[in-house]
Design a protein around this nucleic acid. Sequence first.
DNA 1: CAAAACGTTAAATATATTTTTAATAAAATT
DNA 2: AATTTTATTAAAAATATATTTAACGTTTTG
Lengths: 183, 183
Amino acid sequence: MSESTERSISKIEEAKDKVIGAIAETMDLYGVTPAAANLYATMYFKDQMTLDEMRKELEMSKPSMSTSVRRLQEIEMVKKTFTRGSRKHTYVAEKNFFRSFMVFYCQMWEREIKMNMEAIEEAQEDLIDVIKDSSSTPGIVAEAKKYYDQLEESKTYYHWLEDLVASIRSGKIFEFLPKDQQD
Amino acid sequence: MSESTERSISKIEEAKDKVIGAIAETMDLYGVTPAAANLYATMYFKDQMTLDEMRKELEMSKPSMSTSVRRLQEIEMVKKTFTRGSRKHTYVAEKNFFRSFMVFYCQMWEREIKMNMEAIEEAQEDLIDVIKDSSSTPGIVAEAKKYYDQLEESKTYYHWLEDLVASIRSGKIFEFLPKDQQD
DNA sequence: CAAAACGTTAAATATATTTTTAATAAAATT
DNA sequence: AATTTTATTAAAAATATATTTAACGTTTTG
């Protein structure tokens, strides 16, 4: 191989590594381990990979790759692909960031909505009991009402978040914020 | 204090604790420590608190409260308030979840946009060098082009994310997704 | 059917993060 | 100015998380 070819190849590698580094660094804000973040970023520039190729490329253990791939599958950033003739499982990275955004945040927000709304409903029931209790003093009733109203108001936010999730899931949000809009 | 009053008070506490638990649990998905999560959730039901009150209420050390408060201030979920007559610093929780949402996600997304776009720009420069290099073989040029195009396409996403941040910051998103819309 | 290849699970190790205790710095009151 | 109060920083301890090595089970192939 000529020297200039070698230089070009390493320049391409360098270019990829810059992006890989940036993606991996921002990804651990998404609650994935460094190994999973590096793996996804690496796969972003590959057609498909087997566990052994991952292990070799990242110089990490196979179980680490196995666990990372599973986590990435959970948030749908990696999918298993069928490759005829190969005994090894092959995986591809989701390269459409819009899809990754949708899956990750909708999953995250729905979890938050569910958990908090359930707690709010239960809490409000308790508070209503106190308010209705004829033996409660006016001060107690006022306090219970205060918290009840605070929780009631917070529901506005969760309803809005539900709407946001729905509009992302349905793609309706792109009517408001088009994908291709130039800066 | 009468027995029924006591029962009412503990029922109110129970109600609050349910919500505190839920908020705290979902909050550590937001990259804050358990201490900070519990602290915010506790403060959500208080007018204002001093570090000593926090320490007492959560039964944790003062430095832990100090660090947690600082982190919460960074994401603007807690603000310092001036309380005349008190030497102790007093803090209040941001109770408007819309504001917290805006500050947290816009901050997060802007960081991601900046870091990844910078890397992409640098990488594309490298790739252009390779493409323009007259000594590059056709295969090398094709590879460099492939990655260049992939990166170029990904910019669509970051531009969109920028638009999303802008529409949240300006409040324009609420024209599309109103806050008070009933289910 | 035995041996090899592959993937996953379990236990152990390594690493990083969180929290506390102790020490220091800053501010305020007497 | 000295003492006390409050908050922060630094070092240590505790805890949790991530990763690896080793063992296991399953599938495939010769």
